[in-house]
Structures are given as C-alpha cells and as structure tokens.
C-alpha cells in the first residue's frame, strides 16, 4: 500500500508505528452501532487483521445508526461489514465469524488477537468477554451507549476489568433508545484507543469516560485499583 494512503497519519506518528498497525490483529465483538463504526476506522487506518464477531442479521431498525444499507437487510452483519471493509482497505484481512460469544468459545475466539473491542449490547456477554480478556491478559476496549450518551474505558492487565465497574448491575430490559451519533462517537473513540494501544502513540484511556450528548458534558471517573 503506498505511503500516500496513510500520509496524514504518518505525520501523526511515523512509519514504524504504521508498520505496527499493519501487523496488528484486532477482534471486534459486536458489529452494530459501535462495532460497525470502529471497524471502518480501523480498516482505514491500516490495521492488518480484523476479526468480526456477531451472530445477528441486519434489520431495518438497525439502519438509524449501524453502517449497513437497505440491500443488506436480512444478511449476516459480519458478512456485510466484511464486504464494506474490503472496499475501504483491500489490504486489511477480515475474518467474519457469525457466532454468539459464550463462556465456552470466548477464550478460543479472541486468543489470536492483540486487542479486543467490546462493542456488545448486553451485560452478560460483556462480562464473559471481560473475564476472557482478564484470563488472557489482553487489553479490552469497552464502549457502551444509550440515547445521546455513552461510556468508554480501556481495561489493561491488572485493572480488574469490567467487574470493577459493573459489579452487581442489572441488565437492561427491552429496546435501548439510541441516536446514531452516540455510537458513532463512542465507536470512533474505541478505534482510536485500539490504534493507541497497537502503535504505543498516546495514552490509553484507563478512566471511565462518561459522555452526555443531551446535556453537553464529559466526565472522566477514576477506577480504584
């Protein structure tokens, strides 16, 4: 791939960091509002390998916020996203995994990746993923949204991962209200976090970012070690 493809980011962090991106392997668990955004930025940035994991097909109600089109309706999200990413950057290798993450398959599914993005939409599986990352010592880039708001934190080895934050919390029942730019914003942050982790450029966000788009506020909250 010619340097000019990445000219603007080479000005940010240089060629050796770009080479690290080209060798990197990133897993995106959940290919909806968060995952479909994060995946595109990562492919465009020149990540070497993306593993997309989602068991769902594209539905009409997804289209206010997930980067799919009407022609994708009824098709597996991972297949549609793979096609899109291959157009964005033909040099990024994509593996599409149409499966549900469970306690039985999680470790095996993510083991061969360097960074894991939590782009899921339910607490139970988020905790399964978090536990798997903790057991493997893999960095977990968590994102979540509701309405016009969202949260993001990057969890590293020794942090206690998501159980430090979501200890004894109730799963959300029913449909979660979402305006498209909310996962757009948080999903973009997740992509940025993954790039920072791989390149070593910039500091990972290890505090809980709480963004409120309705009231225009941003808070960073520390997590006790």
């Amino acid at each position: 791939m010619p340097d000019s493809r990445f000219e603007r980011q080479l000005l940010v962090f240089g060629k050796s960091r770009q080479r690290r991106l080209a060798k990197s392997r990133i897993a995106i668990i959940g290919c909806g509002g968060l995952g479909s955004v994060a995946a595109q930025y990562l492919a465009m940035a020149g990540v070497g390998f993306l593993k997309l994991i989602d068991s769902d097909n594209v539905e009409l109600s997804n289209l206010n916020r997930q980067f799919f089109s009407h022609s994708d309706l009824g098709k597996p999200k991972v297949s549609c996203l793979k096609d899109r990413l291959e157009q964005l950057n033909p040099e990024t290798k994509i593996e599409a995994v149409k499966e549900k993450i469970t306690e039985k398959n999680c470790v095996q599914t993510i083991r061969d990746c360097d960074v894991i993005l939590d782009c899921l939409d339910n607490l139970e599986i988020r905790l399964v993923l978090s536990d798997a990352c903790e057991s493997l010592g893999k960095p977990l880039v968590h994102g979540s949204i509701q309405g016009l708001s969202g949260q993001q934190i990057t969890l590293l080895k020794g942090s206690g991962y998501l159980r430090k934050i979501f200890r004894n919390k109730l799963p959300t029942k029913g449909k979660i209200p979402v305006l498209g730019p909310a996962p757009g914003f948080i999903g973009s942050l997740q992509a940025m976090e993954a790039i920072k982790l791989i390149t070593g450029f910039g500091k990972p966000n290890t505090r809980l970012l709480v963004f409120d788009g309705e009231r225009n506020s941003v808070e960073y909250v520390n997590i006790k070690r």
Binding site: N122, I145, Q146, G150, K169, T172
Partner: peptide, 10 residues
C-alpha cells in the same frame, strides 16, 4: 458524589 446511569447499548 455523581450518580450515572448504567449504559449497556452497543
């Protein structure tokens, strides 16, 4: 103290 709602959407 700050009390934030748990957000779980994706």
């Amino acid at each position: 103290l700050k009390i934030f709602s748990v957000k779980l959407g994706g």
